[in-house]
Design a protein around this nucleic acid. Structure first.
Lengths: 348, 348
DNA sequence: TATTGGCACTCGACCTTGATGAGTGCTAAA
DNA sequence: TTTAGCACTCATCAAGGTCGAGTGCCAATA
């Protein structure tokens, strides 16, 4: 897949340009690269190589007489091949451990803290996607009669996460019946994952209805109604959006506005994010690689996290393509591993 | 309180300037005002009046040779005295009625839709503050044992709003005891407002403890623990922040960034908002009248809404001081009245 | 006495111009 | 293959100049 028609020297120069550009934000000229390079190559030679790199699409010039800046393809090459194995700075690690240990005990709190933490550490946008509801483990379920045929269903997950939904039932229920149905479901299915419970209920339903008593019928009915409603229950928690404005490459108001409109459309962002992320491990999506035009000059670093070995959600950050990839990858990787282990050891 | 040292003519001119400025966004000169005014006053005379108005602080000049723009004080005078009684355009009313009738049945949905609606209608920032938890009417309460001394308390309001919190209890409870305690509280207090329930529980607690059996003691204990946790449970739902960027007066990135940081600090904004709003009816706070420097060039239009005659939350919008106050006041007023009546007639 | 026409003045917006300097591509020599 | 040299390009900046909208003030006027 990767065309790699780059010899060692070109690679070295590409890397120099990218690293320098990431730090300074200024287009990098041949002189600068020459000074940085210990093997004494002259600016002129470097110019030749840079011209090649430009022709191959790894570098670009803002205008004729400026230095070079990396293209998305250039960043991609850098991220894939030239990154050192991610190594977290001790103080970053300490800060993360400290912040998370305090909040770890409660799932909801962790989901609040993590994007804040990522945003603070990198001065970029941090986010988490919560796990889908079908992976939640049943601890408790409860039906409350609201009004005629409207029933509120409250579901409690093993780790204390509460979710709820109003369902419309086909006949009126007395509260006492609802209570019994709830108790039945808990007794029968506590400890199972919602997705499995739904499958079992559907299977039960397919059996001869007459075989069940009223209690059972109610419970199955209500359970299926609740579980059928198609919402995956994932939320995108996003923090530090104002950080984006600190970067000079976004001086243009109009791009900025469209970007913030994208942030407001959380639903859409969730889709985008998990389309970018079937694989496991930290992934980097650079600029135009995602096909949302609003994200054209942004890069996102994302990693899934697991609960009990099962992929649960995504954590990551979002910033301009000109970003410190090494640090970002290290941070996101560490946090996703830490989160996985915290959630897997959660008390139940 | 209001100094009103302005004669009818000056008032007329002030109004002309403000209205014109709101529409065009350009400083308004004496010529323009002269042309707008049907009584044929010459630009020179108008200049004199405008100079007076400037001296009194109602108008200001961006620079020597520009027209005048309103100061916050000018807007204040306009809003207090020169506004026509709010009159909603039929199409606005129709759109609101249509959007809200669909969502009205469910409280949570209304809280999502209303800020979106306000934001869409005005291209500014719309918001709602949800009612404080102490005003919620008990429909159902439930305790779930999570782990050792951690108990999850789930509370359901009359209209189906769910809120929950984890409490630390001083001794371990069995789930059966928790269930009984929940049932007791529902049987005893359903239909009452949480604030009142708390008062009653505290009173009960003060009585001779020995007089109660274990069930009662548990229920009282848990109820008080839940109700004591100091969180008012209000949320600020805010929508359309990216609209702010459409207004040319915010070309400056830095102000903008600080503004968005303020938006992220929702907790702080809630405080600010209800400090501005003890009175009833639509209120307008203009620029520096609020003492948050980040809001210096913003105005907010806000109105409380009621549930059963009791003031419950706030609904309103936020935009640049250069805003169509007449329309904004009409919209917010109508929506708050509509919301009050919807929530008061809610089925229970 | 209040109003107004006239006039000098101010100042931002906009354009042109020229100097500066960083950086390039190309070519010819090492 | 590398490199020194050179002509060239182009963004950036400051200086200067014009334009026009709008002002403040004053003397004339109804």
């Amino acid at each position: 897949m990767h065309d790699k028609p780059i010899d060692a020297r070109a690679e070295e120069i590409l890397k120099k340009v990218i690293v320098n550009y990431i730090v300074t934000g200024e287009p990098v000229g041949s002189r600068t690269v020459a000074k940085l390079s210990r093997e004494g190559l002259s600016p002129a030679s470097i110019r030749n190589v840079m011209a090649d790199l430009e022709e191959m699409g790894f570098l670009a010039q803002p205008h004729t007489s400026a230095g070079r800046i990396p293209t998305d393809k250039g960043y991609r090459y850098y991220v894939d091949g030239l990154l050192k194995p991610p190594r977290l700075a001790p103080r970053d690690r300490a800060l993360i451990d400290e912040s998370l240990s305090r909040a770890a005990s409660e799932f909801g709190e962790a989901m609040e803290i993590i994007p804040k933490l990522l945003s603070r550490l990198t001065r970029q946008v941090g986010y988490v996607i919560t796990p889908p509801i079908r992976d939640a483990v049943l601890k408790h379920i409860e039906f409350v009669r609201l009004h005629e045929r409207r029933v509120l269903c409250v579901f409690v997950d093993r780790s204390g996460v509460v979710s709820h939904r109003i369902i419309e039932v086909e006949a009126e229920y007395r509260q006492a019946d609802l209570d019994r149905a709830g108790r039945y479901l808990v007794a029968e299915f506590a400890g199972l994952v919602l997705g499995d419970i739904r499958a079992r209920l559907v299977a039960l339903m397919a059996e001869e209805k007459a075989a069940f008593d009223a209690l059972l019928r109610n419970a199955i009915n209500l359970g299926v109604l609740y579980l059928n409603a198609e919402e995956d229950g994932r939320r995108l928690v996003i923090e530090g959006t104002s950080n984006i404005m600190k970067h000079p490459e976004f001086a243009d108001m109009d791009t900025m506005r469209r970007l913030f409109e994208t942030f407001e459309e959380k639903h859409h962002l969730v889709k985008l994010l998990d389309r970018c992320l079937e694989a496991s491990g930290v992934r980097v999506v650079i600029g135009s690689e995602s096909d949302d035009p609003a994200l054209k000059s942004l890069a996102l670093v994302a990693s899934p996290y697991q609960i009990d070995q099962r992929s649960a959600g995504i954590v990551g950050l979002l910033g301009p393509t000109r970003m410190e990839y090494e640090r970002a990858v290290a941070l996101v990787g560490y946090i996703s591993r830490l989160l996985s282990s915290l959630l897997t050891n959660t008390p139940h």
